[in-house]
Amino acid sequence: MIIETLWQQIEGSSLGTYIAESEWAFPTFETLHVIAITTVLGTIAIMDLRLLGVASANRPVTDVSDDTIKFTWAAFVLALITGLLLWVSKATSYMVNPWFYAKMIFMAAAGANMMVFNLLTYKGVAAWNNSSEVPLAAKLAGGLSLFFWLLVLFCGREIGFTLGVYQAS
């Protein structure tokens, strides 16, 4: 299929082969990916735990958000860049790996959950900003966020154990 040729071309590009053949590149990008993804998850968890009323319950929700969101985005960009570099070097293996698709789906779900929260629920934050009891929709957003990101993490680790298992036909 034409799309498989595309993955092969990406993997065979000079960047792809450089990363695949280099002794330092893949592990170094993985290390940066770990640092980035743990920072994404940790800073998101601070916000989610506030919404769930578990931590920072006495602080305005907007303060907790302002303290964490810039780190979340900075780390997410780093995770995206390093993730892309890892993917380029083994594109054909990732594109036949079910755990890779599962990871992308759960990441999209986490993103959709965040968008719904930002576009709908968070608009009314003024009414519950200083309250430890937030509306059910906000609590749900916090819980779902933690759940989806946990699954992203688990699928990411499964990819590492199954990259050689699934082969392009």
């Binding site: 920072t39 940790g42 800073t43 968890a45 601070i46 993490l153 688990f154 590492g160 154990f161």
Partner: peptide, 17 residues
């Protein structure tokens, strides 16, 4: 092992962040 590693990563998230 992936589950243990996931817990390990979650713990890094909590401690490091």
């Amino acid at each position: 092992i992936p589950s243990l590693q996931t817990i390990h990563l979650l713990s890094i998230s909590a401690g490091f962040v």
